[in-house]
Every structure is written in structure tokens, then in C-alpha cells.
Design a binder for these strands. Structure first.
Lengths: 159, 159
DNA sequence: ACGGTTGATGTATAATTATGCAGACTATGA
DNA sequence: TCATAGTCTGCATAATTATACATCAACCGT
């Protein structure tokens, strides 16, 4: 029952392209655009596709034009892990050396951050030590440490 | 044209608490919950509030239960929303007596929470004192204190 | 090949959300 | 005070989305 499910998959990929390219204001509109690309489907199918893709319906502020559009989950707000939220909330700076990363945080929040990192269970992280405003993260290997550090920085940035 | 727009603003704040506290599957459901908090409004008004708040409708994967819920956009960390995130992250328990609310938190996070509350600038709150795992919130009047406590509890929700 | 099962989809319609319009209220200026 | 303008809201309803049901095709084990 899972062989060349191509049609559905390709169509859903097309949907992702379409919503990324411009604001789509309704499922009918989407169905019409899909038709122009050779996918003949009804609004009902589009509704199911959207549900499966986990797309988000974003309310648009500016009253004119449509009132909402669909976006991909990764672009939209995050439903980030607890670690993600904590990092974006408390981390001020991240630096690394060899297999160690030092995270500077707002005063009093380091222990919470350390706990959140432990909890995330990243395999590349051997352990953490949290003080008051500093967390030391011990990584498995020096080679991958910059990547882990980058991961923390990514979590801060996007906010 | 902009004087004591309190009612609408307060209601929208209540909406943010509600959607953070649990999955809301329809605007009618939201209107009902608001009614229980003393805000008597129709689905039409809720629809407008949601649009103004820029809330997102998120499709839920697991077919059972509802098929979507509303969430707050995480972009642009407004103060209220920062407080909201912090509360949901660190608060364990809220109790009140007279004009005081005692919030128990995870160890080491109380100061951050106290700062976040101060920052939110709620007019009903005179000030806060943060220790290690406890924050004392001094409210303006005993009468409104349970309401403020409720607000914290709403923010905790489940995540 | 055949009955049973699963997945995908259309149709029709239920469920939900958005909005045009009107009324109530507030603030402002003459 | 009165007229005017702006905001907020409910009502009724249009617009949109979700889903129950039926159908069809592919697949599986016998």
C-alpha cells in the first residue's frame, strides 16, 4: 500500500511551492492554481493536503487584500522545543574552544538552561555545568563543537 | 477615540492566555471560555480579535480531537508575550492572600521572572520581589488579586 | 482469480469563520 | 448643544473549510 504514491506527494510539493511564491487566500484559489499545473483536484483534497502538511494559516494585519495566507510551519513561528524557547530567552552569548562551549546568560538563569540542555538529550553533548550566569557545555568531539555552538546561535537569532 | 479602551484590550489579553493554556478548536469555544471569565462577546468579535492579534491557526497532526488550534505568533517578542513565555517556562505554583501573590518557580529563575513581571508594566501590580525560587507579587488591591493570580495560572497551561 | 483491506479522492453538506450593515457609544469641534 | 467622525459590537449571512459517505484502484494472502 506504499508503492508509487507519487501523485499525492508531488502535488503536496507543488502546494509548498505555491504558498511560498505568493499569498494564497483560499483553498479554492490553491485548487485553481494546482489545476493550471496539471493537478486536477477539488477543494476537499486541498483541505486534506493542508492538514497533512501541517500548514499554518496566518492572519494578515493589513486589512486590504486577503485576510490570511498559508505558510510552512518552519517559516512561521515556532513551536520550538522547550530548549529552543529557553535559549532564545536567556542566552546572551555563545563561545567555544576545543570541545567546550560557554554560554553566557542573564543572571540566575544558567541552571535552568543547563537543565534544559541536558533534557534535550543531544548525543553530541556529554554534559553541562550551570552556575549563575554561565553554562559550560562539554561536547563529545572538538570537530563538531562549532556546529553545536552554531546551533545555539541559530536558536537565539531568529526571534 | 483612544481613551479607556480597556475592555477590548483586556479581552484580547485574556484570549492570549486562553490559547496558551490549552488547545482551542474554534472561535465559538473561545467565546464560551471568555464568557466564563466575564467577557460576553460573540464569535464575530472573537474573529476580529484573532485577526487583530495576528494569531495563527495551526493544523494538528493527530487526527483525533480537533483539527487545529490557535497560537500566538512568536515573532516580535512583545513584552506581554515575553512574560507569558517566561511564566509558562518557570512557574510551578501560584497562591495568593490579601493583595499578595506568591509564585513558586524552578530554582534560580525567580529573579528573571520578577524582572519580566516588572517589565510587563501591569497597572494592577505595585511591585515584585524575587528570591531564588519564589517571587512575591504585591498587587494594588485585594479585590483584584485573585484575578491577577488567575492570569498567571492561565499562562501556565500545558505547553 | 477472489474476497478483504487500505488509501486516495469526489460529492454533498455540515461546521466554522469572515464581513456588510446598523446601532450604541465616545470624543471633538463649531 | 448639536452635528460629525470614529470605534466597537451584534446580527444575519456570505464565504470558506472540514468531513461523512461512497467509489475506485491497488495490493495481499489464500
Amino acid at each position: 500500500m506504499e508503492a508509487l504514491a507519487q501523485p499525492k506527494t508531488k502535488r503536496q510539493r507543488a502546494i509548498l511551492s505555491l504558498i511560498a511564491a505568493r499569498p494564497i487566500h483560499s483553498q479554492d484559489e490553491l485548487a485553481l492554481l494546482l489545476e493550471q499545473q496539471g493537478y486536477e483536484v477539488t477543494q476537499a483534497t486541498v483541505s486534506r493536503d493542508i492538514k497533512e502538511l501541517g500548514l499554518l494559516k496566518v492572519a494578515l494585519k493589513g486589512g486590504n487584500g486577503g485576510t490570511f495566507k498559508y505558510v510552512e510551519p518552519t517559516v512561521g513561528p515556532a513551536f520550538a522545543s522547550r530548549l529552543h524557547r529557553v535559549v532564545s530567552e536567556v542566552v546572551i552569548q555563545a563561545r567555544s574552544s576545543l570541545n567546550q562551549i560557554v554560554l553566557r546568560t542573564h543572571p540566575g538563569t544558567a541552571m535552568m538552561l543547563a537543565a534544559a540542555i541536558d533534557n534535550a538529550g543531544w548525543p553530541e553533548v556529554l554534559g553541562t555545568i550551570g552556575g549563575d550566569d554561565t553554562v559550560l557545555v562539554i561536547c563529545e568531539k572538538p570537530e563538531t563543537t562549532p556546529m553545536i555552538k552554531q546551533r545555539f546561535e541559530d536558536m537565539r537569532g531568529e526571534q
